[in-house]
Amino acid sequence: MSNDTITLQAEARSQFGKGAARKIRRDHKIPAVMYGHGADPVHITLPGHDAMMALKNPNALLTIVLDGTEQMALAKDVQRDPIKPVIEHVDLVIVRKGEKVTVDVSVHLEGEAAPETVVTLDNSSLQVEAEATNIPESITVSVEGLTAGTQILAGAVELPAGATLVTDAEMLVVNVTQQISAEALEAELAEAEAEAGIEHEESDADVEAAEGEAAEGESAEGGAETSEDA
């Protein structure tokens, strides 16, 4: 949990549209809108580099400073360029100290499961409710020593103090299964291919090897006959 906020110096903006947004981004800034608690939406720009660093944590608590006034906010929606490492727009929702918010928090696994097992993280985040000023940075789940067949459901995950689960308690989070051997995997693949009617064409190397084996067999038979004739 962290009560620290990241301060971003914002500027009010009065120009809108794609052209204005492109100009803002050319100036290494990010267009944003801040709303919530019945207040009219406020259109602002954020410092590009600082905002990008802050938003690496999707649940970062931000202190937006606009014309000398501070406002706490969370990023509600971050629109990113599909190709370039650029944030195109940010929606910020105003929060108050002590207010509870619902957020998605990432799940991190720690520890080593039993030998010859495979650990699958079926859901990489859990939705929880927490105070806006006390949002968990992550949720840690230990898989230490877990054996094949073990499943961890959302309801069994220990949450940080102050956080309550919103996600369905029956949702599968971690699944531990038996590791499959290479031989068994190959057999399963061959069976699946046979059921699908897939036939593999023999490669030139396979054909040459088969011909070589046949030739050796004929040579051995010929040698035996010569020996008997003698």
Rank of each mutant, 00 (worst) to 15 (best):
V78D: 11
E137M: 07
L109M: 08
R22K: 14
G222H: 05
P82T: 11
G162R: 03
G19S: 15
A209H: 05
G17L: 10
V107L: 02
V207N: 08
E11V: 11
A113L: 08
A39G: 00
A220N: 11
A182K: 13
E211Q: 15
A210I: 14
A21V: 05
P58R: 09
A196Q: 14
E216W: 09
F16D: 06
D168G: 04
A75M: 02
G223L: 13
G48K: 02
K84N: 14
R13T: 11
I198C: 09
D27M: 05
A194S: 09
M72H: 08
A75D: 06
E183K: 13
A156Q: 04
A21K: 04
L92M: 02
K97R: 13
E186R: 14
A51F: 02
Q151C: 04
M1F: 06
D104Q: 12
A20N: 08
A54C: 08
A182W: 01
E11G: 10
K56Q: 10
E213N: 14
E208C: 09
N59A: 08
T164N: 04
V141S: 00
V141Q: 00
D204P: 14
T63Y: 05
E99V: 00
R25A: 07
H89L: 12
P82C: 08
K97G: 08
V90M: 05
R13M: 10
T120H: 09
S219C: 06
G19T: 14
A169G: 04
V101T: 06
D168V: 00
A190V: 02
L159A: 02
E202L: 15
T5A: 06
A190T: 12
K56G: 07
S142M: 01
E218C: 05
M53N: 12
A113W: 01
E99L: 00
R26T: 09
V86W: 03
T63W: 04
I83R: 14
V176H: 05
G223P: 00
L109H: 06
I198L: 15
D122H: 10
V174N: 04
L46E: 01
G197S: 12
D50G: 01
V174F: 01
T5G: 02
V118T: 15
A75I: 03
S142T: 03
L185W: 03
G222E: 14
E211G: 06
E218F: 08
T177I: 10
Q9K: 15
L109E: 11
P136W: 04
N175K: 15
L66V: 04
A192E: 14
D77P: 02
T102P: 01
V86N: 13
A224F: 15
T147N: 13
G149S: 12
I87G: 08
E116Q: 12
D206L: 07
P41H: 04
Q71Y: 00
A60D: 01
Q79A: 12
L153I: 05
H28V: 06
P31G: 05
I152G: 01
V143W: 04
M171P: 05
M1C: 01
A215E: 12
E202V: 08
E225Y: 08
E99M: 00
G111C: 05
D104R: 09
L126R: 00
T133C: 05
L8I: 04
A10Q: 07
Q71K: 07
A194M: 08
G222S: 13
V86S: 12
